[in-house]
């Protein structure tokens, strides 16, 4: 599968040169020229990596990075900036970036770093996936992630694929809020995020399965305006 990269850079020729090279490496590149536009695009689409310039019109790259981190802790962010003092680099890394490359840079180095970052984040993702046990118990419920079977309030039943993925995602990030954008990106595999109530319907269904009182959910809680989180007071792992 092609990796999707968000390139935030306001210099037209640099945009062109970087995009050309990344595309020749087999990546798909989306370009954004301003900080505010970058945030908008990031929230609407699914990416595997973000390349950020620091000196940008409207909003600087550091703020963009902080903003991205509010919605997605995992995605690798690489700063590509002309600012090259140690203080600049430290600041960039502190704001949540994974790597910092100064201009002018070596093409080879940029490509290697990008590939490594993407590869590493994919490894982390898959190892996270393995963290959830095959049979996961919470309260009086359990879910078997292998054969889609589950035990809920109304007894045994079978979860659909999407329901299973959604539960898995929430449980992987237990006690953390998972944003709606992130859910749509992972579970529905959207590259372009639609304005949809799909998630809400799925959450309603899941609450009906597992919650004693779906109006006062114990496990699947809402974080108003952001997304959902899974909490369980006594997390038993089978």
């Amino acid at each position: 599968m092609q990796n999707r990269i968000l390139l935030v850079e306001d210099e037209v020729h640099l945009q062109h040169a970087i995009k050309l090279n990344l595309e020749l490496e087999g990546h798909q590149v989306q370009i954004s020229g301003t900080g505010t536009d970058a945030i908008k695009i990031f929230r609407e689409q699914k990416f595997d990596l973000v390349i950020l310039d620091i000196m940008l019109p409207e909003m600087d790259g550091l703020m963009v990075c902080e903003n991205i981190r509010m919605y997605d802790q995992q995605i690798p962010v690489l700063f590509l900036s002309a600012k090259n003092t140690p203080a600049d680099r430290i600041n960039g890394l502190k704001k949540g970036a994974d790597d910092y490359l100064t201009k002018p840079f070596e093409l080879e180095e940029l490509i290697l770093r990008i590939n490594k970052l993407i590869e590493r984040s994919k490894q982390i993702k898959s190892s996270n996936e393995n963290k959830v046990p095959k049979l996961f118990k919470f309260g009086n419920n359990w879910i078997n992630f292998e054969n889609h079977e589950a035990q809920g309030i109304g007894g045994k039943f079978e979860l659909t694929k999407k329901e299973l993925m959604l539960m898995k995602l929430l449980i992987e990030n237990k006690n953390q809020v998972v944003s709606r954008e992130h859910i749509l990106k992972v579970v529905w595999d959207y590259t372009v995020i639609p304005n949809t109530r799909t998630i809400d319907n799925f959450i309603l269904a899941l609450r009906k399965y597992f919650e004693e009182d779906p109006k006062m959910p114990e496990f699947i809680q809402s974080a108003r305006g952001i997304g959902y989180k899974f909490t369980s007071p006594e997390l038993k792992e089978a």
Partner: peptide
């Protein structure tokens, strides 16, 4: 000045490397 001098240099270098 960092920006104005390094940006064209970066672009040229990148193009040549390409």
């Amino acid at each position: 000045i960092t920006h104005e001098l390094k940006t064209p240099l970066t672009a040229m270098k990148l193009y040549l490397e390409t």
